[in-house]
């Protein structure tokens, strides 16, 4: 049974092969670091390292070096795929869809009465916090700047 026997469609097969050539299928990050430099160079690096670092800061994520390389490469690959949208001719009057299924007055959910209901076990919720003292959730200093 061939490794690829399931993926009979030829084009996709070649694509997989190409991608596999730049990626060790066993240990992901190792491969990404080793990566096929030519391929990486050909792939448009639309999201620069600088933009990436800014995003990481906004997202409040501390990343390992090996993670950054993988994530930046994948972001640019995904963005290349997203660019397909630009080629679509969409009339200005096509409305955006935030949901697929329209909500009619009949199918819209009934609103709850604006009534207070007690939580059955508030302590069970507070106890979820990693550090609690006397029902207070403990955190380190909250950064602040003094306004001039």
């Amino acid at each position: 049974m061939g490794d690829y026997s399931i993926v009979a469609y030829k084009g996709l097969l070649e694509w997989i092969k190409r991608l596999r050539s730049i990626m060790n299928s066993d240990i992901l990050l190792e491969v990404r670091n080793r990566g096929d430099l030519q391929y990486m160079a050909n792939l448009k690096q639309e999201i620069s390292r600088e933009t990436f670092d800014h995003l990481v800061e906004l997202a409040a994520l501390e990343l390992g070096e090996d993670e950054s390389d993988y994530l930046l490469t994948e972001l640019n690959k995904q963005l290349s795929a997203i660019h397909e949208l630009e080629a679509i001719d969409v009339d200005k009057d096509v409305p955006p869809a935030s949901h697929g299924v329209p909500y009619t007055p009949e199918s819209s959910p009934q609103l709850r009465k604006d009534e207070w209901t007690a939580c059955e076990d508030a302590d069970a919720i507070i106890e979820q916090s990693p550090v609690v003292e006397d029902r207070f959730i403990i955190v380190p200093d909250i950064p602040h700047t003094t306004l001039e």
Partner: peptide, 15 residues
């Protein structure tokens, strides 16, 4: 496709 081999596609977020 039908089920692909373990580890074959994993990591490639686009594929």
């Amino acid at each position: 496709s039908t089920a692909f081999p373990m580890k074959d596609v994993y990591g490639d977020s686009v594929l």
